[in-house]
Every structure is written in C-alpha cells, then in structure tokens.
C-alpha cells in the first residue's frame, strides 16, 4: 500500500516537473491550447460571441494575447482572471461562483425548490381528499366510474389485447 502510494507520488512529481519543464522551454502554444481558454470567454466587444470563434480583428488580437500569456507560463486561471480584471466579469462565459454572481445560481434553485414544494403540497391535499370522502359514501365510486369512462380508449385497447391472448 505504502509503496503504491509513493509510486503515485513519484509519478505526480514527475509529471508536474515534466510539464513545468515544457512551459519553461517556451514552445509556442498551439491553437488548440489557446482555444481551450478562449472558449471560456466571450468576445469583449461583440454580442455574445465566444472568443474562440469570433472572426473580428479584435478577437484575433485577444487570442494572440492568450497565446503570449501561455508562452510566458501563465496558468489558465491566471489568464481568465486577467481578462476579467481588464474587461469586466461580462467576458466570462460562466459567472464566478462568488459574491453577487452567486445569486445567478441560487435564485433559480430556490424558485424551483419552491415550485416543487408547492406542487407536492397541492398534490398531497388533492390525494388526501378522496380518502376522507370515501367514508361518507358513494362519491368515490362515482369518481372512479367517471375516470374509467373517460379512459375508454385505453380500456378498449386492453380488451382487444386480452382477447388476442
């Protein structure tokens, strides 16, 4: 077990060493590396166009900027943070889960939860009622009669199928 763990540790160190060496070598980052980051950003000037596919000259410059920052060894998080500092939170495709932006996530959840709550409360009220009524007499029978009358299509279908067997 211990051996196994140290092997993992070693691998981890090795991999991180390897990658940091790769960065230090300052190879030009590929388009795919650039796009992977640009994908998470909006073009700061166009209307809701992701930065990785925006064809304007400005966006080309921004992608070059990402490439440059990558070759300087900046991490993805640093680059995203830089863009947010420079151009405001609206360039992020996904608002950060902090501060005011939390509300973007929480409010819909709360509203949906409220919806679920009210629906179940209403359903409970509805489903309980007939049970209470059943004691008082034939009302319940009438209801089920009506139900089956309205579902006559399904009933007919089931009958046909039974006959076949």
């Amino acid at each position: 077990m211990k051996k196994y763990l140290s092997l993992v540790l070693f691998l981890f160190v090795f991999v991180s060493l390897f990658t940091s060496v790769a960065f230090a070598q300052e190879t030009t980052p590929t388009d795919n590396q650039v796009n992977a980051i640009a994908k998470q950003l909006f073009c700061p000037v166009c209307q809701n166009t992701p930065l990785d596919v925006c064809p304007t000259e400005a966006c080309r410059q921004w992608r070059e900027l990402i490439r440059q920052m990558l070759s300087e060894g900046k991490t993805e998080a640093e680059i995203l943070q830089y863009f947010e500092d420079q151009y405001g939170p609206r360039v992020r495709q996904e608002p950060p889960r902090a501060g005011f932006s939390w509300l973007a996530y929480i409010i819909p959840l709360l509203v949906i939860a409220a919806g679920v709550f009210f629906l179940f409360r209403a359903l409970k009220g509805w489903t309980k009622a007939p049970v209470a009524e059943s004691a008082s007499g034939g009302v319940r029978n009438d209801v089920s009669k009506k139900v089956s009358a309205q579902d006559d299509y399904v009933v007919r279908l089931e009958d046909e199928l039974k006959k076949r067997k």
């Binding site: 998470q40 909006f42 809701n48 992701p50 405001g88 939170p89 609206r90 992020r92 495709q93 996904e94 608002p95 501060g99 005011f100 932006s101 973007a104 996530y105």
Partner: peptide, 12 residues
Amino acid sequence: FVGEKITVGPPF
C-alpha cells in the same frame, strides 16, 4: 445592484 453587467453564458 453592483453596477456591472454580468452575463451568464452557455455553460451556466
């Protein structure tokens, strides 16, 4: 409320 247009994008 915070004076900044925060857009939510496709991932959201």
